[in-house]
Design a protein around this nucleic acid. Structure first.
Lengths: 225, 225
DNA sequence: ACCTGAACACCGTTCAAGT
DNA sequence: ACCTGAACACCGTTCAAGT
């Protein structure tokens, strides 16, 4: 009787919640969130879909779990005396993690059960700002402004219709050519005179916008109540 | 022979791309994006799933289309002399539209084909800032900072684990109680001393954070190159 | 205890057939 | 021209059966 080879049992560690989530992240990275099905994650792990249910309750828990894994990748500097430098490092690490896993932002609006890494992240943000002298309510404002900027910036960045400098010229030219005559004059100018002539530089907008916010927060920090 | 009643043909206008998209928005609003299937949208319209394919190419076009419909709901003030006031009105209108349709943010990271309302929106942003005296490259920075803030703020707002002031107390208390002893001390303080004592006020953080950014942009606008 | 085959109620999409 | 039934290759999840 010819049985299928038992590749997994011989070459891989047994299943666990962590391995299920890692497999799901790999599927999402390689084929997009829409490809994250219990069957595909199982296949990635060399196992049957039904086996996953021994380690996670359902697909929702998988989605919560992979968002938390992305948060776990964000650096939270512990030894940075300057609060603005600490926030800059956290923000650029967050941007990198979210660009590595752009599906995470798409999941965030539907996730309502923060995992341990997410909670640790929020705790660090609040703690570091408190330590810098922000009052509780000013800390709340600072967190929402900073996180808002980071998430929103990456969301725009990952919805740009091109991924590499090489793609930019082709896509931008084709897009402008497809505009109805006289439609979107300002957008056309921006694409022609700025984006196309200066090359692909969207990423370079991240730091200046962030500094603008940090400067505003520094003023807030020192303002009399 | 008992045929099923032809409700649609008698009581409803015939199908069109616009009606398909409106149906999809209704399904997404009422039952979440995950419920937006060709079959459910068709059911919402009193029609069979296969009929939709005469008006849209595939489900991807439906998703592109409903994101564009959300952009179409955002007010773009045409008669506001003060650029900051114009940006404030646009931003709060955008926040409202995105809160009405929170699934739109979740779709944005995977949409790469902007529709006419999205293009009109970007064209307005660029045009209004240019008119206020921003250079092309400063306009690019202003747009990415402002849109980033708005999208990110609403993304945080819609991933809060509560929807109403009533829910806040129960959810926040339960969450803090579930924390491991000594874990997340700063987050606990924030929830206990700020969020719970001052009531549900996250929405009130939107305008101050936005003003902080607008002030920074005003400085940028006037700075020597 | 952990894994899985079969089953059920769903998906998106094609295609040939109806009107 | 527009609509649809049947079909195909997928989904998430349950449950009973295997080891």
């Amino acid at each position: 009787m010819a049985s299928t080879p038992r590749r997994r049992q011989e070459s891989r560690p047994s299943l666990s919640r962590a391995r299920v989530l890692e497999g799901a992240v790999r599927v999402a990275d390689e084929r997009g969130v829409t490809a994250v099905s219990m069957r595909k994650v199982a296949e990635e792990l060399g196992v049957e879909a039904m086996s996953l249910y021994h380690h996670v309750a359902n697909k929702d828990e998988v989605l919560d779990g992979i968002v938390d894994l992305v948060f776990a990748e964000i650096e939270l500097p512990r030894d940075e005396p300057d609060w603005r430098a600490a926030m800059r490092r956290r923000a650029s690490s967050a941007r990198e993690a979210l660009l590595r896993h752009p599906w995470a932002l798409g999941l965030m609006d539907s996730r309502r059960t923060p995992g341990p890494a997410t909670l640790t992240h929020h705790d660090w943000m609040i703690g570091r700002l408190r330590q810098a002298g922000f009052s509780l309510s000013r800390t709340a404002r600072a967190v929402s402004t900073l996180d808002g900027y980071v998430y929103g910036f990456v969301l725009q960045e990952s919805s740009l219709p091109f991924r590499t400098p090489e793609e930019l010229e082709g896509v931008a030219t084709a897009m402008v050519d497809a505009f109805p005559a006289g439609g979107y004059p300002h957008l056309t100018e921006m694409i022609r005179a700025h984006a196309l002539s200066q090359g692909y530089a969207y990423a370079e907008e991240f730091a200046p916008g962030l500094d603008l916010i940090l400067d505003g927060l520094e003023t807030l920090r020192n303002a009399p109540c």
